[in-house]
Design a protein around this nucleic acid. Sequence first.
DNA 1: GATGAATGAGTATTCATTCAT
DNA 2: AATGAATGAATACTCATTCAT
Lengths: 217, 217, 217, 217
Amino acid sequence: MADPDSPEPKFRRRAEHRPDELLDAALALFVEKGYSHTSVAEIARKAGVSKGALYLYFPSKQAVLEGLVRRAVSPIAIRAQEAIDIADADLRATLRALLTVIATALGDPKVFAVPKIVIREAVVAPEIAEMYRRAVFDNVLPAGAAIIRRAVAQGKIRPVDPEMTLRSLVGPVIMHLLLSEIFGIEPEGGLALDRLVENHLDILVNGLFPATESHDA
Amino acid sequence: MADPDSPEPKFRRRAEHRPDELLDAALALFVEKGYSHTSVAEIARKAGVSKGALYLYFPSKQAVLEGLVRRAVSPIAIRAQEAIDIADADLRATLRALLTVIATALGDPKVFAVPKIVIREAVVAPEIAEMYRRAVFDNVLPAGAAIIRRAVAQGKIRPVDPEMTLRSLVGPVIMHLLLSEIFGIEPEGGLALDRLVENHLDILVNGLFPATESHDA
Amino acid sequence: MADPDSPEPKFRRRAEHRPDELLDAALALFVEKGYSHTSVAEIARKAGVSKGALYLYFPSKQAVLEGLVRRAVSPIAIRAQEAIDIADADLRATLRALLTVIATALGDPKVFAVPKIVIREAVVAPEIAEMYRRAVFDNVLPAGAAIIRRAVAQGKIRPVDPEMTLRSLVGPVIMHLLLSEIFGIEPEGGLALDRLVENHLDILVNGLFPATESHDA
Amino acid sequence: MADPDSPEPKFRRRAEHRPDELLDAALALFVEKGYSHTSVAEIARKAGVSKGALYLYFPSKQAVLEGLVRRAVSPIAIRAQEAIDIADADLRATLRALLTVIATALGDPKVFAVPKIVIREAVVAPEIAEMYRRAVFDNVLPAGAAIIRRAVAQGKIRPVDPEMTLRSLVGPVIMHLLLSEIFGIEPEGGLALDRLVENHLDILVNGLFPATESHDA
DNA sequence: GATGAATGAGTATTCATTCAT
DNA sequence: AATGAATGAATACTCATTCAT
């Protein structure tokens, strides 16, 4: 500006990426130290801008968190719809695929980070939990239940309660990740997500009890 | 009392129950507003004592939280041991009893409150998560796995992975509570914990798939 | 009390020594941590009594400090008077004796402790400095000046200004101790108080300059 | 100013002199009430800024004190070196000049204030005494000793112990100031620093005793 | 006399947010 | 658009002192 023919600008269009850079910085810091122990100044510094600049893009610190959640959430809703369409093929294979996808996706700390933050802040900022719920669960849960409901209707699986069965399907994965990510509890030899999925599928398919007993329960 | 026209004694001496009263106050506030948004002054006020008095019993705010965890945790470890002793009787009945116990216990907001707080603070105060893990999970998880291992050895259930199967058993309950307590997601008609337990047991017993398919998986 | 014939009491007259025990405890702590960083509770604990008991003997924390000063100060005034009486004998020997006495007395940390504390607190509690001044300096300085004045009158020393000469006599010792006690500056090989005294006396007696010059100044 | 009818700008930007203004305010308050009885809020208020602004320039209250010491100390080290260079000329005149400089410099309450504060805080914050020692004494004392040593070597003064003689030279001035500044003890008719210097020089030059005796000591 | 539980005023430090430049 | 100096409210913790027992 002061020097019109200076070769400096390189690419000055950076500005449009600012919000994303800020969200990246914020995510890293929130994961490391938690939302309330991360200062706005730190976020700005890590993103390489001034504190004031952050307020150009986000009206408040909480808005940054909301932006983070929003960004993480949008792809999920889309995939949920896709899943529903594929599910008709081989159910058992689909199930394995689904659990594996969920498990590996959430197993990636980058991905699990946002729900973890949401859980943390839910008490204090219910509107964030609310937003997450609307964006994620209100899409994913009915979609999942619908898949199950259809499978029941087609006689592919026994007549179970779709909503509750969804919890039976996914709950173990969630618990596994909670134990690992929050309490640092891992089976010997690492996260072992595949071991969990295989064992869980085995139970889902064959039940817990020996064959002779499985019909008179 | 001794002096009927004295204006409320300034010092209500040696309450003996002070620590517990303080923990009660703290629990209520932590649940409502979260740990870091609750001030020491508020805790003291709610417990009806001065700020200074709180520091007579707890050396720091974090120590209050630790006290809370400790208090909530001790009964759990005890029950876990009891469970292991009963488990030999009718496994299927035991299973239903167990899940119901877990579900109703954790379904009580007073009880679920502490783990919820722990999850919130885990990122920032790992020593709290650590304490909880040692006091709860290090007892409960091996105990549960042991029960399953024994049942397998006795041929009462199919040869499954004990550690992972534990997650398959309990995970759905945990997920159900997470959805309900943190995201406010409940099936129509309330928490429906029994519906969850029944459906889950049905799947565990009979598997997910129709009888004809359940043997050739 | 509960057991009237218990042989416990040993000697219950301790009570009369309480104030002194408290002062001992306070002195040790004030020296170690300074007046304002020492809590009343610590003093009481170190003296083996309760906080309340301390307030039975001293109306406030500052009163403890005052008591300390008072106790340290009383012997000084007495000795000052004694010194004046001896001084007539051999002046030069007296001088050496005096400096040595002052130096070794103040060189004892236990003794220097009180003036050190007084210096520390003088700004904040001028009444303590005032007390010290009245009790110590208002006795010692005139006494010292009087000795010098008499010596001048008797022609034993040159006609010097008595008040100022007193500073020339004692100042080096004070400075030596300040450097050592407060800034930790000591000549190689320890405090070397005798080296200081000898050198100082040499200068006082022979002047600083070579003999040939010492008369035409 | 630029906008005459605007109601005092909320932010008086970039004072550039802020640190110095804060140090001035702090010095005044520390002198008046002592370090630990001065609150950060008071310093800020006196300097005309907010509490937060102070923390923009100093990371802690103690850092303010350190800044104060540092600021007071830098000129001293410089002068000490200058003195050494002049000292070769007329020793006796130099001595008078030196003592007068020291005396009048330290006689200015603004200058003596910092060492006084340092002495006060030395017990509690040894790192401050340490800093002062390194910045002042480690320069000044060796420099002074060197001057004396050289004078001895050149036969200009009698063979005295340089380190100790330094205390004999400066100690009386220090003691004089201590008595005056801390205990409020002044000779009739004011501080009388010149009287002290003259009398002290007289003793240094001619010794304390009459001429006839001064050679057979 | 003696105790120690209780009080509550006092204070350093942090940090989201504003706004003159 | 961008800066960063300035604000000031908020908060954990300390400790001299009191007083019911």
